[in-house]
Design a protein around this nucleic acid. Structure first.
Lengths: 198, 198
DNA sequence: CTCCGTGATGTCAGTGACTGTCATCAGTGT
DNA sequence: ACACTGATGACAGTCACTGACATCACGGAG
C-alpha cells in the first residue's frame, strides 16, 4: 500500500458527481469536493484540468474508439458508412449503463457551463473523425462534412434517447441508441433529398 | 449630452478587440480593457455578461435573422430549403465586411475559451432554427436534424471561407460564403446518398 | 426655480477558480 | 545508510465575477 489511500482520482470523481447531483454544479466548490474525498483543493487540480473536466475525462477513450472504428472500416465503406459505424458503436457504449448516462446527463443539462464543455467534446469528436476519414483517403470537404453531419445526427438521436422513458429502452430494442443513430442518418438523408432542385 | 462620454459599450468592445488581438485573450485582464475605455472593471460587467461575450454580442441579431428567414420561407419550401436560405443570408451578412470577420476569427481561433463560446452560439442557432421549423409545421425529428445538419454544413463552409486567401473573395465570386454554404449542402446530400443500402 | 426620481457610473469588499512554489515524506533502488 | 522520486499538503497570489452602497448629472413635477 502507498502512503495514501489509493485511487485518489476515482474518489474525487465520485465525490464530485455526488455533490453536483445533490446541490448543483454552481453551488459546489472544488474545496468541498476535495474534502469529501479526503484531499485538498490543490490535489483536485492536479488530477483534473478544471472543475468541469471531472465529468468528461472518459472522452479520450471515446475519441480513440471513434477514430479506430473509422480506420478499420472496410475500404468499400463510404465516408458516411464509416462515420455511421463509428457513431453506432459509440451509442452502444452508452447503452451499456443507461441509468448512469442519464444521471450524468441530468447534471450536465442543468448547467450552462457544463453544456458548453459537452459541445467542445462533440466538436473534438467531429474533428477526430474528419482526420480519420482523411487518413483513409476521403478528400475535403467530404471528410469534414461527413463528420460534422454525423455528430449532428448523433446529437438529435441522443437527445431523443435520453428523454425517453427509461423502461422502454430494455424491452423492445426499438429505442436503443445505435438504432436511433441509424434512423437519424436515414432520416437526414431523406430530408436532404427533399431539397428543391437548383 | 450625457454626464459621461457616449457609447461606453462600443468603446469597451473596441478596446477589448484591440487588446485581445495585440496580447491575446488570456493575457488581457478586464481591468485593462476598462481602463483603455476610460471606465472601471465593474462597468464592463454591467455591459457584458463576461469577458468573452464582448466578442459575441452581435448574436441576438443573427438569431432573429435566422428564425425570421425560416418563418418567411414559402410554404412550398422543404425544411432543408428553409434552413439553407437562412444560412445563406447569414453568410451574406458575413460577406459584408470579410476583413473584420477574419480579424475576429483569428482572435477566437487562438483561444480555447473563445472557441467554446462560439460553439455555444452555433448550438443556439441550431436550436432556434429547429424551433422556427416546428412553428411552420415540420415534425420531429426532421426539424432538429435539418437545423443541426445545416449548422454542420455552415461550419465546414465557414472554415473553408475563412482560410481562403482574402484577395480571391472579391474577384470571381466563386468563393463567396453564401455560395460555399449552398455547395456544402449539395455535397452533404451526395455524401449521404452514397451510404450503403440497408 | 427647486426638488426629486432615475440611470449610468464609481467604490469597495468579498467569493471562488485556478496557478506557482516550496515543503514533506513513504517507498524504491543502490 | 542514502539519494531519488512521486504524490500530496501548505500557502500566497491573480483574476473573473458579484452584491451593496454611494455619487451625481439630467429631466420632469411642482
Amino acid at each position: 500500500m502507498g502512503r495514501w489511500e489509493p485511487n485518489a482520482r476515482g474518489r474525487l470523481a465520485e465525490a464530485a458527481l455526488k455533490l453536483y447531483a445533490e446541490q448543483g454544479f454552481d453551488r459546489t466548490t472544488v474545496t468541498e469536493i476535495a474534502e469529501a474525498a479526503g484531499l485538498t483543493e490543490r490535489t483536485f487540480f492536479r488530477h483534473f484540468a478544471d472543475k468541469r473536466e471531472v465529468l468528461f475525462y472518459g472522452t479520450e477513450m471515446a475519441l480513440t474508439m471513434l477514430t479506430h472504428t473509422i480506420a478499420e472500416a472496410p475500404a468499400s465503406a463510404s465516408p458516411m458508412d464509416a462515420v455511421g459505424a463509428a457513431l453506432e458503436s459509440f451509442g452502444a457504449f452508452f447503452q451499456e449503463d443507461p441509468e448512469r448516462v442519464r444521471r450524468r446527463d441530468a447534471i450536465v443539462s442543468a448547467s450552462t457551463e457544463l453544456r458548453e464543455r459537452e459541445l467542445v467534446k462533440l466538436d473534438a469528436f467531429a474533428s477526430a473523425m474528419a482526420d480519420a476519414l482523411r487518413e483513409r483517403g476521403t478528400p475535403e470537404p467530404a471528410a469534414g462534412l461527413a463528420a460534422e453531419a454525423g455528430i449532428a445526427a448523433f446529437k438529435v438521436a441522443y437527445a431523443h434517447w435520453v428523454a425517453a422513458e427509461p423502461g422502454k429502452t430494455d424491452r423492445t430494442g426499438e429505442q436503443q441508441l445505435p438504432q436511433l443513430v441509424r434512423k437519424a442518418l436515414t432520416e437526414l438523408q431523406e430530408i436532404l433529398a427533399n431539397r428543391a432542385p437548383a
